[in-house]
Simulated scan of single mutants.
Amino acid sequence: MQKITAHQIRSSFINASRSEAAKLNLPHNFDTIDWENREFLGWRDAKMPQRGYLVVPNQGELTGIMLRAPEGGAGKKRAVLCELCRDVFSKDDVYLWVAKRSGQSGKNGNTVGTLICAEFGCNANVRKEPPVNEINPDPAAAVLKQIAGLEFRTAQFLDRVRNGSQR
């Protein structure tokens, strides 16, 4: 991912009003983000922990979506898999993040949700090399496949928010 500015982030949202986008709090480490090792920028709002943001370069443009986490955290603890990174080794919490659909559908109250790492650690998760075994004889190739999968599944989720298409 290429470096992006606060203005680019705020103007990228497809399911948030201009005032909501203007009021969002950027990640605390925004000035030191390692842009080369990420497929998207995802973070929780420090002042509104139930709110999260996902900003993705998609089809030549930057697309941002505002998300809502479940009230009171994850609730009952269960082992669930993040739909974006699908990291089976991660011990991180995974939430059902919900996004208003874009356009009139979202204004009518329609939403779409998916399971995503609670702290948006997917970029790091897909870069962990799996142990060498018969299924993964080349860990570096496995990482490239994991990154491609993350990009594909993230784009699918954006399409569901944007177009309302079902999986």
Rank of each mutant, 00 (worst) to 15 (best):
N110K: 13
A118F: 02
D87R: 05
Q166F: 00
Q166I: 00
A140P: 01
F40K: 05
G106R: 09
R78M: 13
G73W: 05
A142G: 01
G73R: 05
P57I: 04
S102N: 03
H7A: 15
C122T: 07
F89H: 06
A69I: 00
K128S: 06
N136S: 13
F30N: 07
G149L: 12
L26C: 09
N37F: 15
V98G: 00
K128V: 15
N123K: 06
I135D: 13
F30Q: 11
L24E: 03
G42N: 04
F157P: 08
S165C: 14
A21G: 08
R167W: 07
S19T: 14
M48V: 04
E39M: 03
A46N: 00
E39L: 01
R153I: 01
T114W: 03
R78S: 14
R127A: 06
N108R: 15
N125G: 04
E151L: 00
L26P: 03
V55K: 04
D45L: 03
E134K: 12
G109N: 10
Q59H: 14
T111N: 05
I116E: 00
P57H: 09
W43E: 00
E129V: 05
P49K: 11
R86T: 06
S19F: 12
E61H: 12
W97I: 11
S19N: 06
F13S: 06
L96Q: 11
S12M: 08
N25M: 08
S165M: 12
I33E: 04
S165V: 15
N37W: 11
R101L: 13
D159E: 13
K76R: 14
E20Q: 15
M66H: 12
Q59C: 09
A6S: 15
R127M: 09
N25P: 00
V80D: 02
D159P: 01
T111P: 01
H28A: 15
K47M: 14
T154D: 01
A124R: 12
G113R: 02
R44H: 01
A6M: 10
G75W: 10
P131D: 02
R167D: 11
R78C: 04
N133H: 07
V98T: 14
F157K: 07
Q59S: 13
S90M: 06
A148D: 11
L81E: 04
R160H: 13
L158W: 07
L150Y: 06
V80A: 09
C117K: 05
D45C: 06
F30V: 08
F40N: 09
F89S: 10
N15P: 04
S11W: 01
E71V: 10
S105K: 15
K128A: 07
G103E: 08
